Amino acid sequence: MGVVRIGQTEVVYELRRSAAASERRITVTPGLVEVLALTTDDDAKIDNFLNRKRQWLFNALRELETATAKRAVVPRFMTGSKIPYRGRMARLTVRRHDGPHIDISYQNGFLVDLPSWVREKDQDGVVAAEIKLWLKRRVRRDVIAFARTYQRRFALKPRTIRVADMKTGWGACGPTGSILINWRLVFAPKAVMEYVVAHELAHLSIRSHGAEFWALMATLMPDYARSKNWLDRNQSSLDAEVFTSKQPVDKAT
């Protein structure tokens, strides 16, 4: 644990060192500020980095407070509720039927056919769990499709690619070429999800975020800047409390 003072406020952070990291980074999430340092960094280098990022950290914490107050909340999973999906709020319709299974479909909104054996008092929890599972499966399908496209066009082949519930970040490319994608990207427009997949695939060739990396990104996805800017502006609002209370808000490098 460490402490950085911003005006009269003391911000407690967790320090993590990584041999795989090529640059220092600060990640701000609800209840946690994490500082990623290089294994070669001494205390003076870390303090200097934090001093340079003091204003950024102050702004990120204030933005988090605002976003937490405004982020999407689904109070009830019933007909008329709104579910965040692909950058907008989609209407939910719940119907009862006599079949044995729970069926979910999407066409201009979510339609959940709920068996009559599901008790009324259990409806919210059952529908929430089933929609979350549906969303995760949709993300996996999309991520695999994007990865195959870039592998075919640019010969960028990860060792593995997996969708998971990440505590921090939207994606990661491990030192062995394994890629991890945050399932909550299902709440962003599809092009934003594609950007994150392309971003992590680009790290198979270039590990840092220098000019060479962004030149490669421009080759992979010429309009990547539009999706990157959308994510920078909206990432703090991508979470619905009913699914999770932890949401990455921003990073500084």
Rank of each mutant, 00 (worst) to 15 (best):
T149W: 07
G177M: 02
A20N: 05
A215K: 12
T79Q: 12
R137Q: 15
M221V: 07
R138A: 14
T253F: 13
G2S: 01
A211I: 05
Q151Y: 01
N108L: 09
V186Q: 02
P100T: 01
S81G: 15
I161W: 11
M217G: 00
N234H: 15
L61T: 01
T9D: 02
H199C: 06
N108G: 14
A129Q: 12
G7Q: 06
P222E: 00
D239I: 09
I83N: 06
R226L: 13
E241C: 10
M78W: 05
F58C: 00
D43T: 07
L135V: 11
W134P: 08
A60P: 01
G169H: 01
G174P: 09
E200G: 07
A21I: 00
N59Y: 06
V11E: 02
E120I: 08
S18K: 10
T149A: 04
H203E: 03
R148T: 10
G169Y: 02
E65Y: 00
L185I: 13
I179N: 00
I206Y: 08
R96E: 12
E65W: 02
G171P: 13
R25I: 08
R119S: 05
L238S: 09
E63H: 07
M89W: 14
G87L: 14
S81A: 15
L216G: 03
E65V: 03
L61Y: 07
P115Y: 06
I181G: 07
L238H: 07
G125C: 01
N108S: 12
R184E: 05
Q235N: 14
A72R: 11
R184S: 02
G169P: 07
L111E: 12
T168Y: 00
V35G: 03
T253H: 10
R24M: 14
E212I: 03
V35S: 03
M166R: 11
D124V: 09
R62I: 01
V3M: 00
T244Q: 10
A225T: 10
R141F: 13
T40V: 04
V118R: 03
R226F: 10
R95W: 09
T79C: 11
L61E: 03
N51Y: 13
L201C: 04
A67C: 03
E10M: 02
V28N: 07
W230M: 11
E194Q: 15
W134E: 05
T93V: 15
V112D: 04
T168F: 03
W183H: 12
V94L: 08
A218D: 04
L114V: 13
L61V: 04
N182K: 03
Q123A: 09
F243L: 09
E120T: 09
Y13F: 12
S105H: 14
V118W: 00
E65P: 01
R62N: 00
I46W: 13
Y106V: 11
R184F: 03
H203C: 02
T29H: 06
V74I: 15
A37I: 06
V139G: 08
K82H: 13
R153E: 06
Y106F: 15
Q123Y: 01
T253N: 12
